[in-house]
């Protein structure tokens, strides 16, 4: 199964019955899968007239308390950013997929990770975050989609799957043997009062500045809790590592090969793969900085995650960058050479 299809199937299994989107390479398989399946299971597939329309349809269904999603790729996510900010302002749960492609502008259609800042800092205007999940296999595309819906409902916020064109387009075996939790009750949803309760109001407009300030501060307490409890990372051979690679998504797959190559040559290399990009698994990096001599951030961008690595380690170890951009992907050999170089330099 393709990575994009795995997202779509997992969403359906998680109980999502509403999908709104607008086609863009390299994520259109999600829409195609939804178009085929949704009508058969009583769900809604709707190809909107634009990305902006689609995200606002998501806002509508989320307000009614139903699991809902949209998907797009980089330029389309920029268009959706206004809606993402509104979802955050109204504390609505939703799942948004970004199968990143090269940018800026229309860029290209090949894979990229250059929307890291946009995703982890919120993307739209205002003080807010999204939970950002970074799958690195087709299996994880499915798994993190389910996780994304669960976290979104739990915290009443948007989860974003920050994938890339490679993981979206590649096929791997995938198992759907998931233990899916029951959907939580949503007493805040606008489901009709039946004259039996007060109106539920979903809104992101606060004309009273004191109230808006209080709401933002409350929301940040929630973010603080999420940062403490929900950060996830996978560590590979890090325990005794001198050189540690930081990489997510497709870059982590490439880096893993390079780490194996380095180990075969007697270099103690390891890999930390953030699974959540927001919250960033800072504690894992802080611990690694105790013994590592150098950290290399391997990215399909001009260096975005590297800033979070530097923050997490408080620059206690040198952090260097190994990258390709524009739709290019670093080769395992390029990463291996970076490891060799870092090992010779020694670092701290």
């Amino acid at each position: 199964m393709k990575g994009n299809e795995a997202i779509a199937e997992a969403a359906i299994q998680a109980g999502c019955r509403h999908y709104f989107g607008y086609p863009i390479t390299p994520q259109t398989e999600i829409a195609a899968y939804m178009a085929k399946r949704m009508p058969k299971i009583g769900g809604t597939f709707l190809q909107a007239e634009s990305e902006i329309a689609a995200i606002n349809m998501v806002y509508g269904v989320a307000s009614a308390g139903k699991r809902v999603m949209t998907s797009s790729s980089s330029p389309g996510i920029s268009l959706k950013s206004e809606g993402l900010s509104y979802l955050a302002g109204a504390d609505l749960p939703a799942l948004v997929v970004n199968a990143q492609r090269g940018g800026p502008g229309l860029g290209g259609i090949q894979p990229s990770q250059s929307d890291y800042f946009q995703a982890t800092r919120g993307g739209g205007h205002g003080d807010y975050h999204m939970i950002v999940l970074a799958p690195s296999s087709v299996q994880e595309m499915a798994q993190l989609t389910i996780k994304g819906f669960e976290l979104a409902d739990q915290y009443r916020m948007t989860s974003m799957i920050l994938a890339d064109g490679t993981i979206g387009q590649m096929m791997e075996p995938v198992s759907f043997d998931f233990d899916i939790k029951e959907q939580p009750a949503k007493p805040w949803a606008t489901t009709g009062t039946k004259m039996a309760r007060e109106h539920n109001v979903i809104n992101s407009l606060y004309l009273n500045p004191e109230l808006l300030e209080k709401t933002n501060i409350e929301r940040y307490k929630k973010y603080e809790l999420i940062a403490q409890t929900e950060a996830m990372a996978e560590e590979y051979l890090t325990e005794d590592a001198d050189i540690i690679i930081a990489a997510f998504g497709i870059a982590a797959r490439v880096s893993r090969n390079a780490v194996n190559e380095a180990r075969a040559h007697g270099i103690k290399a390891g890999l930390i793969r953030p699974v959540t990009l927001w919250p960033f698994p800072s504690a894992v990096f802080a611990k690694a900085a105790d013994h590592a001599k150098q950290i290399i951030s391997v990215e399909l961008s001009m260096g975005q995650m590297i800033e979070d690595v530097q923050l997490a380690t408080k620059c206690r170890v040198p952090v260097s960058l190994c990258y390709r951009v524009g739709g290019m992907i670093p080769t395992p050999d390029q990463v291996y050479q970076a490891i060799v170089e870092a090992n010779e330099k020694g670092g701290k």
Binding site: T25, I109, M170, M171, I250, R253, V254, N257
Partner: peptide, 29 residues
């Protein structure tokens, strides 16, 4: 299985990487 192709349905270059392994597959390219 990883495809790589341009925006054209026909023509242009197309290629496809396949890896078969007894171990978990690392980089798919």
């Amino acid at each position: 299985w990883l495809p790589s192709y341009g925006p054209e349905m026909r023509g242009g270059t197309a290629n496809c990487s396949v890896i078969l392994s007894d171990e978990p597959v690392g980089a798919p390219i």
